[in-house]
Amino acid sequence: MIRLDNVAKRYGSDVSIGPVNLQIPAGGITALVGPNGAGKSTLLTMIGRLLDIDEGAIHIANFDVASTKSEDLAKIVSILRQENHFVTKLTVRQLVGFGRFPYSKGRLTAEDETIISRYIDFLNLGELENRYLDQLSGGQRQRAYVAMVLAQETDYVLLDEPLNNLDIAHSVQMMKHLKEAATALGRTIVVVLHDINFAARYADYICAVKDGKIAVLDTVENVMHDELLTEIFNTPITVIDGPDGAIACYH
């Protein structure tokens, strides 16, 4: 479980996030949704200790994020941001290999290699594993990054807009991979999504963020309602029944 107690972050006098009290349940996928600038990514980066919090405390599986050693946390939680530009030239396999750094400190064992192969195959990157990242398409590269954080074998995986710049097919494929990681591998995945319908279809819980505060955190069925979504996204939204559950119409 990820627990946030009175977490706050201030940017200047008028922009602030929190105080946030939140308990993200262990297991399954939790989607963070909300309008632009609501603070979804900021919350995620604070949970993933990429950003220091000004007030409050965050606990992941009872480890205090602020006081636990970063190298120990790297075995409990992994986080992937949306923008990744490396100056170094890496192959897919070398990148995924870095996911083992918290355990191997750069000295890969035979066991590490097996684990690396496993996650490369898990994301269908087997044939691309010796290709350089700059020779891949956006969707393939995104999969390689996800393979790296999965290879970290952390119980908690935080992903910041993994569907960014992906077309429909790649988005669906990516969400299926994440769903599989949550069910088959037993990971707790927290993911920032822009498309409420992807959240409704693949997530187990939806956490809506608005103006730096948590508007709601509940199961998909309880969140997918006209009035609630309309209020959160500041735009008229109608929820209808689709072939795979509720669909929000807003166009």
């Binding site: 120990d72 790297a74 075995k75 170094t88």
Partner: peptide, 18 residues
């Protein structure tokens, strides 16, 4: 070996515990 990780940028290094 730490330099190899630092080359991936601040956020990735932090994620990997460096």
């Amino acid at each position: 070996r730490n330099l190899n990780v630092l080359g991936l940028g601040r956020e990735v290094s932090q994620n990997l515990g460096v």
